[in-house]
Amino acid sequence: MKKVLIFGYGNPGRQDDALGVLLADEMQKWARENNMESIDFDTNYQLNIEDALTISEYDMVIFADASIEQIDHIKLTRVESNQKTEFTMHAMSPDFVLHLCQSLYNKYPETYLLHIKGIEFELEEGLTTNGETNLNLAFDFLVNAFGRSNFPKDILDRHCIEQKGAINAKP
């Protein structure tokens, strides 16, 4: 059985920065209720070097993070290996983690990043109204994909290409 990891990251104490973590939590509840044993879940404040080892043990990885990019709601993109150095190395990007995974463990899981539009990032708990809407869209999107396949690579790839990542409809 092919293994899937859904990895949400962000700070739950900073409003919409929690979006990735909350999506992973919600998906975990759904997976338990539906006996989706091939999906594992992880969360953290940010990605770091040890996550290269973590993702090396999976066939598919879906990272989920809050985004302030110019997107309407949510967007799915394929993560490609990239060693571009960011200005911070206390935290890493998904493409950097994937590159490290490939370099150290010679593994290259099918990797995606779910960008979830966030609005506010202040020192408060709880999502904004729009953040909540975007979380629900992200949840519906993944539930729909995994409802159709335990390993929805084709569905996700097709979506990345046909919709150019933007998600305004179900896959």
């Binding site: 962000g10 700070n11 104490g13 900073r14 919409d16 920065d17 404040y45 940010q46 993070d65 809050a66 985004s67 302030i68 990019e69 960011e86 200005f87 911070t88 206390h90 935290a91 990043l113 960008h115 966030g118 990032f121």
Partner: peptide, 15 residues
């Protein structure tokens, strides 16, 4: 040094 304010949303870190 660590000066993180702990938010790191995508697209936020220009050099």
């Amino acid at each position: 040094p660590c000066l993180s304010c702990a938010t790191h949303a995508l697209g936020k870190m220009p050099l």
